[in-house]
């Protein structure tokens, strides 16, 4: 398995852990009043972004060290034409998934669903979009194109 595929797997696991930790925590907010609900979700999304970035930085540093020890090969220092092409395709898939989830979330509002349904859908969509991004990396690096 290539460095990029292993990195994507580590990234998926990190995202999953961070998302589950924060998402389970916010589920108790269902009983909160309509006024405080958007504020709670705002804090959730900001906390999520900060914790995810920090967790990924730390875990990827640890991953790079372990990978170098295991394979005796340094991580690629630059992105060549194939890496850029794969990145473009993966980001395209991410955008498709994100747009789809966004419209589903807006659809929930349009059919008079509670505000929490829209926020839950958006949160799950963020997570699934990240998942699609990393799975696309694995798919294109392993299968080729």
């Amino acid at each position: 398995m290539t460095y990029h595929s292993k990195k994507a797997i580590v990234s998926i696991l990190t995202s999953l852990l961070v998302f589950l930790y924060l998402f389970i925590d916010i589920q108790g907010a269902g009983s909160a009043g309509v006024e405080s609900l958007p504020q709670l979700w705002g804090v959730f999304f900001l906390k999520w972004i900060v914790i995810e970035v920090l967790a990924k930085m730390v875990i990827l540093i640890v991953f790079n060290i372990l990978n170098r020890l295991a394979t005796r090969e340094a991580e690629p220092s630059f992105a060549d034409e194939r890496d850029r092409m794969i990145e473009l395709k993966a980001v395209r898939n991410f955008c498709f998934m994100f747009s789809f989830g966004f419209f589903v979330a807006m659809g929930a509002l349009a059919i008079h669903q509670p505000l929490s349904v829209m926020f839950n859908t958006l949160a799950i969509d963020f997570f699934l979009s990240g998942l699609v991004l990393n799975l696309s990396y694995i798919f294109y690096y392993q299968r080729g194109f």
């Binding site: 630059f78 060549d80 034409e81 194939r82 890496d83 080729g144 194109f145």
Partner: peptide, 21 residues
């Protein structure tokens, strides 16, 4: 001027290089 992984992919015919490469 590419990574070793790209040469591996070209040899395994998993990737068609650009005309320049």
């Amino acid at each position: 001027g590419v990574t070793r992984q790209t040469i591996v992919a070209i040899e395994k015919e998993k990737y068609s290089p650009s005309l320049e490469l």
